[in-house]
């Protein structure tokens, strides 16, 4: 699978959980690798790009989570 597709799946997963359950990086890695049939490292790599681009951010609420940045 193309990296862009993995990234899209990650973003959709985070979007879907927003407001329901905060996802940790490992939750995303586990879910997306299982659903898309790619390795954890591939998910990690795509996630890293999403965070570098600012499309997703890390947050901290008693633990570290991955979320969509708030609208300014």
């Amino acid at each position: 699978m193309e990296k862009a597709e993995v990234a899209k799946k990650i973003y959709e997963l985070v979007e879907k959980s927003t407001g329901k359950k905060k996802l940790k990086s490992s939750d995303i890695q586990k879910t997306v690798s299982a659903e898309a049939g790619v390795t954890r490292d591939e998910v990690k790599d795509a996630l890293r790009d999403l965070v570098d681009e600012g499309k997703l951010i890390y947050t901290y609420f008693g633990g570290s989570f991955v979320e969509i940045p708030p609208k300014q």
């Binding site: 990086s25 890293r48 965070v51 570098d52 951010i57 890390y58 901290y60 609420f61 008693g62 979320e67």
Partner: peptide, 16 residues
């Protein structure tokens, strides 16, 4: 404490 501040690409090193 807590929240969303940090430097781009990292989820560590800055505590809001």
């Amino acid at each position: 404490h807590g929240g969303i501040v940090g430097v781009r690409g990292y989820g560590s090193g800055v505590i809001g």
